[in-house]
Amino acid sequence: MSRTGTQSQSGEGRASVYQEVTDRIIADLEAGTVPWVQPWGRAGLAPGLPRNAASGRPYSGINILILWGAVIQQGFSSQHWLTFRQALALGAHVRKGAHGISVCYADRFTPKTERDRAARDGDEPGQVSFLKRFTVFNIDQCAGLPEGFPGDPAPLPERALIPSAEAVIAATGADLRIGGDEAFYVPSLDYIQVPPQPAFPDQINYYRTCFHELSHWTGHASRLNRIFSGRFATQAYGREELVAEMGSAFICATLGIRPTVRHADYLGSWLEILREDNRAIFRAASQASKAADFILADAENMEQVAERGEMVS
Rank of each mutant, 00 (worst) to 15 (best):
P201F: 09
P201L: 10
P201A: 15
P201T: 13
D202S: 11
D202L: 09
D202K: 13
Q203Y: 06
Q203E: 15
Q203L: 08
Q203N: 14
I204P: 00
I204Q: 13
I204K: 13
N205M: 04
N205Q: 10
Y206I: 10
Y206P: 12
Y206W: 15
Y206K: 11
Y206S: 11
Y206D: 13
Y206Q: 12
Y206H: 15
Y206C: 10
Y206A: 12
Y207R: 06
Y207K: 05
Y207G: 05
Y207L: 05
R208L: 07
R208Q: 08
R208K: 13
T209Y: 03
T209K: 04
T209D: 05
C210F: 00
C210M: 01
C210K: 01
F211S: 05
H212V: 10
H212M: 08
H212W: 09
H212T: 12
H212P: 12
H212R: 09
E213D: 05
E213P: 06
E213N: 06
E213T: 09
E213K: 07
E213S: 05
L214F: 03
L214V: 06
L214G: 04
L214P: 06
S215T: 15
S215N: 02
S215D: 01
H216I: 03
H216A: 00
H216K: 02
H216F: 02
H216T: 05
H216D: 02
H216W: 02
H216V: 04
W217S: 08
W217H: 13
W217A: 08
W217N: 08
W217Q: 08
W217L: 06
T218E: 01
G219F: 02
G219I: 05
G219D: 00
H220V: 04
H220W: 07
H220K: 04
H220M: 01
A221G: 10
A221Q: 14
A221R: 14
A221F: 11
S222I: 10
S222G: 10
S222H: 09
S222R: 15
R223K: 14
R223Q: 06
R223P: 04
L224M: 06
L224D: 04
L224K: 06
N225L: 04
N225C: 10
N225T: 12
N225H: 14
R226M: 08
R226L: 08
R226K: 09
R226Y: 11
R226Q: 08
R226H: 11
I227G: 02
I227L: 11
I227Y: 07
I227N: 13
I227T: 15
I227V: 15
F228N: 11
F228M: 06
G230S: 01
G230F: 00
R231T: 15
R231M: 12
R231V: 15
F232Y: 15
A233Y: 09
A233P: 01
A233K: 13
A233C: 06
T234H: 02
T234N: 03
T234D: 03
Q235K: 14
Q235G: 11
A236C: 06
A236S: 14
Y237Q: 00
Y237T: 04
Y237I: 03
G238H: 04
G238K: 03
G238C: 07
G238T: 09
R239S: 13
R239I: 15
R239Y: 14
R239P: 07
E240L: 02
E240D: 11
E240Y: 00
